[in-house]
Amino acid sequence: MDIIKEYGFIIIFFIMPVIFVIQPLFLPMIEEKKNQLSVDGLKRKKLLIYRQIKELEMDHDIGNINESDYKLSREALKQDVSEIITKLNSL
């Protein structure tokens, strides 16, 4: 009992965190996930642009943008999205 009392907190304090921390070092090599990374990024980019298109449409409905500007910006955004979709498909 005394031993546990005396060393109990050292175990919690030190040994457990150390095991937790060095455990990954004994794992087999982990392969890189770069591919996954860029797919996630592209998907988020796509979402961002979709939202921008939606907001643009809303501003247009409200009447805060004139017709020619609206068409121009919308075209540009659509262009961006289609580029991202092409990239996504190629991965």
Partner: peptide, 23 residues
Amino acid sequence: NGDERLFLTGQRLALGISFFVFL
């Protein structure tokens, strides 16, 4: 060197800092 295992350890070390601070 890009060894993912080191990243995991680093992450866990960072969690360790927080653990001790909480304590």
